[in-house]
């Protein structure tokens, strides 16, 4: 762990890991999706059920990445770990993209199932709020050029978000049942059959590996970006002494 704290070592490690992880992710996703397309169709939903094999992994990653960011935020605030903030900042756009993908695939799935692109159902709405939280964090981390100043602000906001997620989830569900008559068919199908479950798990694993690859790459980029900033600042100072 102390080895990893050194950004140079981290970059060396990431350089070695990224190709392998990426290759593995591509392979596992391919296998998962292939199995998914060969799995039997759902007797109720027909062919549209296949979108589940990407939708569910996206939704799971949307939550997983936020959890990872919360852990990173904890690392920033408690241990002042130099890489924790890099990790948080790098993860936010990836998380936002996966959340957006979950929302998009969900509504593409919802259109034939529910007859509408979107319903303000508890679960969907919570994910949408999560998406807005991601966007807010991205805006915050981008607002300041100086990484050390934005680090803590982003960490605090992430943790406040984590504490808030159960409250949001609870209140959204309460809000929805309070207002909405049972106009929407809920997706409470029969418990999932193993022939559908295995492809789902494998493709979830594949997309998680993809996330890990992207996260490592983004962290590496962020470290380089910070080095460029400090080198530029040094260059500005250097020009002064030379003149």
């Amino acid at each position: 762990m102390t080895d990893l704290a050194n950004p140079t070592r981290f970059i060396a490690l990431a350089d070695r890991l990224v190709p392998w992880l990426g290759g593995l992710a591509a392979l596992v996703i391919a296998v998962g999706l292939w199995m998914g397309f060969n799995a039997p169709e759902d007797y109720q939903q027909g062919i549209t059920v296949r979108i589940m094999y990407i939708h569910v992994p996206f939704a799971w990653l949307a939550m997983f990445i936020y959890t990872a960011m919360a852990a990173a935020a904890f690392g920033t605030l408690v241990w002042r770990h130099p890489l924790a903030d890099v990790s948080l900042k790098a993860a936010a756009p990836i998380g936002a993209v996966f959340t957006a993908l979950a929302l998009i695939t969900g509504s593409v799935w919802g259109k034939p199932m529910w007859g509408t692109w979107w319903v303000w159902d508890g679960r969907l709405t919570s994910v949408f709020v999560l998406f807005l939280m991601y966007l807010g964090l991205i805006a915050l981390t981008r607002a300041l050029d100086d990484p050390t100043r934005s680090a803590r602000a982003a960490a605090v906001l992430t943790l406040v978000g984590v504490i808030n997620i159960p409250i949001i989830k609870f209140s959204v569900e309460w809000w929805n049942t309070l207002h909405q008559p049972a106009s929407v068919v809920r997706l409470d199908g029969p418990t999932i059959h193993p022939s559908l479950l295995w492809p789902l798990l494998i493709s979830a694993l594949g997309f998680t590996l993809l996330y890990a690859t992207l996260h490592l790459m983004a962290m590496r980029t962020e470290i380089w970006r910070r080095r460029v900033i400090s080198m530029r600042r040094m260059a500005a100072r250097g020009a002064e002494t030379a003149a």
Partner: peptide, 18 residues
């Protein structure tokens, strides 16, 4: 102005005199 080296830097990074 003796600043030939710093054209590529963001203006915000410079010192007051620069």
């Amino acid at each position: 102005m003796g600043l030939g080296e710093i054209g590529h830097l963001p203006f915000g990074y410079l010192s007051t005199g620069q």
